[in-house]
Amino acid sequence: MPVDARPEHRQREYGVRLEWGLEGAELLAAECAVVVVVDVLSFCTSVDVAVGRGAAVLPQRYAGPGAAEAQARSLGVQPAGPRSGTGPSLRPSSLVGLPAGTQLGLPSPNGATLCATVAGSGAVLIAGCLRNASATAAAALAVGGPIGLVPAGERWPGGTLRVAVEDALGAGAIAAALPGAECSPEAELAAAQFATAHARGLATVLAATGSGRELVADGYGADVTLAAALDTSAVAPRLVDGLLRAGTA
């Protein structure tokens, strides 16, 4: 069900809107023609890498590894393995050699869960990140507005939303690639954050964020580097028949 928000919170005066997390996804999906979910570290970056290889991704709500694996297999989709394993997983670096034609079930508590939430809304769903920011912006413009940007954020141990700088930067990069679009202050200021981080060096900034430091500490620094590669991808993964598939600007 769409979140019950006051009219002042709905950003209806603007063609490009931004709101965070699950509630933001529900709100924007109810009112926008296209919704872009942004989870830079790491779901949407992983989707971009996989789809760029000619694969397709099933976004799965996170309900524990056993449930996700069972769902994927029941749909005839290859389940992702654990992040610490050697096979395809939520790590973007695990997908750089993914064979074309693979259909991969990819669960995550943030990006994938938000994609699954938007999927039943009727809005066009695109998975955006830094790697495909300009391609995503062009694909969203081709659909028409309003355009909703949803930085996914992360989760505190208790399950509440943790605002994640990297997702604000990804959403800001997409907003910045929408010249002439009337952005809400929320979207406009995300674009300003992106401009500042871009000037400082995206790889440096991402590695210094809380999420980036966590990945580096766990031995996944290569994933941060892949995520920071601005506009290296021309695909804008779009949900078609339940799977995120290649779309181009």
Rank of each mutant, 00 (worst) to 15 (best):
R73P: 03
A68H: 09
C44S: 14
F43L: 11
C44W: 01
G81F: 01
A29V: 10
G54K: 13
G64A: 06
L27M: 14
P82K: 11
S42H: 11
C32Y: 00
S89F: 06
S84F: 03
C44K: 00
D39L: 10
R53G: 13
R73G: 03
A68Q: 13
A70E: 10
A50D: 01
A80Y: 09
S84M: 07
P59A: 04
L27G: 12
L41M: 08
A67L: 10
V77I: 15
V38T: 07
C44L: 06
A67G: 12
A68Y: 12
Q60G: 04
V36R: 04
S42E: 13
V47I: 13
C44E: 13
T86F: 02
G76E: 10
L75Q: 04
P82T: 09
P65L: 08
P65E: 05
C44P: 06
V40T: 01
S84Q: 10
G85S: 14
P79H: 01
A33W: 12
Q78A: 13
P59H: 06
Q78D: 05
G64V: 11
L90F: 09
S74Q: 13
G87T: 13
C32F: 00
D48V: 12
S46W: 09
E26K: 15
V37R: 01
E69S: 14
G54F: 15
S84Y: 06
A50Q: 03
P82A: 14
P79K: 00
A25R: 00
A80I: 08
V38L: 04
L58F: 15
L75N: 02
V51G: 02
G64I: 11
A63C: 07
C44Q: 05
G24A: 07
R83E: 15
G24M: 10
V35E: 01
R83T: 15
V35S: 05
R73S: 08
R61W: 02
D39K: 03
V34I: 12
S74G: 15
V34W: 00
V51L: 11
S84C: 07
A25I: 00
G52H: 10
V51C: 09
R53I: 14
D48I: 04
E69G: 05
Q78L: 15
A30G: 12
V49T: 10
Y62V: 03
G76P: 02
A30K: 01
L27N: 06
P82F: 09
A67M: 11
P79S: 00
A70W: 05
A33K: 14
A67F: 07
P65M: 07
A68W: 06
D48G: 01
A72M: 13
T45D: 10
S42W: 12
V34S: 00
V37C: 07
A63T: 01
A72S: 15
E31S: 11
T86V: 06
C32E: 06
G64K: 08
Q60I: 03
S46Y: 12
